[in-house]
Design a protein around this nucleic acid. Structure first.
Lengths: 343, 343
DNA sequence: CTGTTAGCGCTTTCAG
DNA sequence: CTGAAAGCGCTAACAG
């Protein structure tokens, strides 16, 4: 059993690659490749010898080279600022799912102007991604064409209502959620219901939320009161301003439905500041069910959407689609009205 | 001027690569490469012809191939869950800086167990990154060795006090910040100061904050009261619990210094719930100055650390270091005590 | 200014 | 089960 001691240790280094490992293990490079990616195709003995060298030298295969010849391993994603409520959760979901499926997340984020958006997609595509996950931005025609010609599976996380997805879409119906919350508030006896959102122009999600709010009012026989809507930036300060503006417009306002928890949190603080009791003097409802919503005083009545799950699901869809499985064009994620004390 | 109309449009496609573009433009592949990356080295005429084909065909160069032959373009980063306060801002900063410098952000995130951490680094290294940006995790010895043998510039965003960085480090002195806040509270007349943090074990940042808190008390002649410290999860619920636990231990407690705004926000809500006035009945101080801190009622007294800037700076350090510039081993980022109404 | 040659590190393919 | 040859798409290095 005169086993060759493999740790001669002083052979001239040479760049550490599959080739060098092969030389040290006394096999062909191809065999090392197999030992690493397809261990069954190599005899146990050889494999052991190779793995020993790999471990000793701390060899890490070059993914760039590997991805060039074989399967793509990058999942690219373009997201709005992570600081926005919910996006971080979503990215977390994608990241976790990527790790599970052996992919890598390449992230581009920012406040995308129409041109920048196209540019970001171009960059992403340049890395030969296995798939792309996008938030629903303006999506200029140029960007859409680019995506289509990219021939890569794409999941858009977006408003699902009335969308014609580029490839696959995943999301909630913002109309339904807002309709449900508005109905819920009516059921609880509120009558004068205000609504805050960022400028809805060019943002189909917020647009759908507003339409849902309006429709619920109309369907229940309330002539819907246009002056009870405001557009303000999605920040706590925006929520605080909403309280001022809307109660000024209608002193008898019952409740404000904020199209984001961030706004709602600001609104709640403003009430504290004024010494107003919630929900007696003014009730507040939110959207998103962020972590803080259940810890706030009073706890926030809000719409729960599983952002983390959406991120996960997006990657899973992509992976399935890559595996040749048939995926529904549009998948609707459920939601839940969380009824707590703020409204 | 019989310009060759270049849109013959029906040449057999061939995979769209630099080679195919070259064929269609009637030049050598190398010339296309130059037109794309080093436009000055190509005659205006040729360049125009090439760019026209590139635009018409929607050609996007393969970054994988390009990165193999020339400069690395990926910056890898390993971060704790994005949902944690501050991390999202930091990633945003990195992302923005990457875009400015023409790099790509490859993200790995998660709750890293010691083994997983090593694994994540291995994965990152496999993509041949130009540099790595890491949060200060436990950093097992194996992981450290891996990083050193990776021969890649590394920026650790971490506690800077008493650190021996693998390569470069960037961060605040958590000791100094906590010391400063504690002194600030003493200056304002508070005497019985509680302290909340997550379990500090294995987290040098939190450990340093606690030591800073203790030292400030000692330096001002206060025998420091061990029972006024609790370890609780960094969540709003943790903050709420801190109020219960600490006021139970010491009914005369003046103020709670929360080692994170998330905790502080929870503590503030708990006070509202109990109908306690802040800061009269109990004052609350935070750490981080998140967006909400200035919108909360009452507005939160907290430590401001520029997380976004840290992310940016980390990338900039990396880029400079790649350009051969000499970078200080450890760079300390400033901080500010934001004095508002909560304490 | 433009082209040719060689090769990055790996894997596909085909031949032992 | 193992190996040799060829090439992924691009660019450094060297001619012209």
């Amino acid at each position: 059993m005169a086993k060759r001691t493999p740790h001669s240790g002083s052979e001239p280094a040479g760049k550490l690659g599959i080739k060098e490992i092969a030389r040290r293990a006394g096999v062909a490079p191809m065999t090392v490749s197999r030992a690493l990616n397809d261990p069954d195709k190599v005899s146990i003995e050889t494999r052991a010898r190779i793995m020993e060298v790999v471990a000793r030298e701390g060899f890490i295969p070059n993914q760039l080279a590997s991805s060039m010849r074989s399967a793509r391993r990058i999942i690219g994603t373009m997201v709005p600022p992570l600081i926005n409520s919910g996006i971080a959760e979503q990215v977390q979901g994608m990241s976790d799912a990527c790790q599970a499926s052996g992919h890598q997340l390449l992230l581009i984020q920012g406040d995308f102007a129409p041109g920048a958006e196209e540019n970001a997609i171009r960059t992403l595509l340049g890395w030969q991604p296995a798939g792309l996950i996008l938030q629903a931005f303006v999506q200029s025609d140029a960007a859409r064409r680019l995506l289509i010609s990219g021939r890569v599976p794409i999941v858009e996380i977006s408003e699902v209502r009335g969308r014609d997805p580029i490839d696959m879409a995943l999301g909630v119906s913002n109309f339904d959620t807002a309709y449900a919350m508005t109905s819920h508030l009516l059921d609880k006896g509120y009558r004068r219901i205000g609504f805050v959102s960022t400028p809805v122009h060019g943002n189909d999600r917020l647009q759908q939320r507003r339409i849902g709010y309006r429709q619920a009012l109309l369907d229940r026989g309330h002539s819907y009161p246009a002056p009870l809507e405001v557009e303000l930036p999605i920040t706590p300060a925006g929520g605080a301003d909403a309280v001022s503006i809307l109660t000024e417009r209608d002193a008898a306002l019952d409740v404000i439905f904020c199209s984001s928890d961030t706004l709602a949190i600001g609104a709640v603080q403003e009430c504290h500041r004024r010494g107003w009791r919630i929900p007696e003097r003014l009730a507040i409802a939110g959207y998103g069910d962020v972590d803080l919503a259940s810890q706030l005083f009073p706890r926030l009545t809000t719409v729960h959407v599983d952002r983390y799950g959406m991120g996960r699901r997006a990657v899973e869809q992509l992976v399935k689609s890559l595996a040749g499985e048939d995926i529904p064009k549009v998948e609707t994620i459920g939601f839940e009205i969380i009824d707590r004390e703020s409204a």
